[in-house]
Design a protein around this nucleic acid. Structure first.
Lengths: 214, 214
DNA sequence: TTAGTTATAGTCAAGTTGACTAGAACTAAT
DNA sequence: ATTAGTTCTAGTCAACTTGACTATAACTAA
């Protein structure tokens, strides 16, 4: 499952969006579902997740991490299915390039209808994990481009945590964390005082099992 | 994989122990490995983990949570194996009852030899998760019995985090957390001033997918 | 009775957080 | 050219938390 930020239609502020695919066969034919597919014998879990993502949505996100293995008995009405779910964060530029078609569409994460299988529950869990990682780890930057202003970082936090944060206090805290580098440049073209541009220099904490196939 | 506290042979202080099983067939015949087994068609992942645990070690831990799905291509030299690993915490009373035999033995978590498959890596990952959950969540209590002293809680933290903590400051912090209840009783029989007994009243945060089979 | 040990409460300085004030730097309107 | 509007940015201050430390309480063993 994929998270990206897109501007809300109304306010223009960034909000969380998720691409879903329309099911073309039973069960749950014509309902929306998370992209996914089978695991082949010649690829690791991580590789399979990458491949399925690319094939369904055309995306190749930099941040990809295992979410959880769902294996309840009645997840699918027709057969026993175990889904090892991965979640990805993509940058706005990438998300803009993503395929959208009759059978692939982006939805606001907080305005989903009823999805196929247990996919609503999976998304809820992923949202919880995203909020948790946002509150602790340094994950927000993977939803932004290479250069960003601290106000943009704040907007990511506000979108994910769904509450407003004091700009001055937020600055102070972010600047106290490591891995944030002042580029010395400024974002020009805004309507107001031009903000400084920063860069994230940290690494995206690795999964224990994500070496690619040689 | 299972964690339990047992008194260290030398110091008598509690340390982390793990039960392992000896492999009776190839590959890795006669080497020590994590207990485990296949997933059948009629049980959830959680149920399968419980069953495998019971069958190999006789344990039925109260705390059981999914750790990670390991699915690298070369985990087993003979075939492709995906392991959905669970981790459990057992109380000392339970751990004492656990079967120990020619083919099941407990080891100190910090003194393991070379295990079968990638099981050393799995244990390292589980230890990291345990330390992390210990530092934030309220997980230490699942390694203790129903009633415990605050010094015992501190010993759990010290064993897992592997550093000494100031008794007075630790008390203050633990008492400030919710879900810790003073029973009004005292632990008698010690050599010194008898400490108060406390009880944990919180719930063990549920996995998203752990409903038992009906 | 005393020494030894752990249990428990409290103090204090340093650091962090949240609410708030204020000036800096730009654009758009007059 | 000036002013109003907006965001950016730094700083202040009280409340709270943390880590180091002191002191007393309550027991056992000598």
């Amino acid at each position: 499952m994929i998270f990206a930020l897109r501007p809300s239609e109304r306010s223009g502020r960034p909000t969380l969006w998720i691409p879903l695919v329309r099911r073309i066969r039973e069960p749950f034919k014509d309902q929306w579902a998370l992209p996914g597919g089978p695991l082949t014998h010649s690829e690791s879990l991580q590789d399979a997740a990458s491949r399925n993502l690319r094939e369904t949505s055309g995306l190749a996100p930099k941040y990809l991490e295992q979410l959880y293995a769902f294996g309840g008995l009645h997840r699918s009405p027709t057969q026993r299915v175990v889904s090892i779910v991965y979640w990805a964060l993509v940058q706005p530029t990438e998300a803009a390039l993503a395929d959208e078609s009759e059978n692939v569409r982006w939805f606001r994460a907080d305005r989903l209808g009823e999805l196929a299988f247990d996919h609503n529950a999976i998304i809820d869990y992923a949202l919880g994990r995203l909020r948790n990682k946002m509150a602790y780890g340094s994950i927000a930057y993977h939803l932004l481009g290479e250069y960003f202003t601290l106000a943009q970082v704040r907007e990511v936090y506000e979108a994910v945590l769904d509450r407003e944060l004091d700009p001055a206090n937020f600055r102070r805290q972010i600047k106290a964390t490591p891995d944030i580098e002042d580029t010395g440049e400024y974002l020009q073209g805004g309507k107001h005082r031009p903000p400084r541009l920063y860069r994230f220099t940290g690494r995206p904490g690795l999964d224990p099992d994500n070496r690619s196939t040689p």
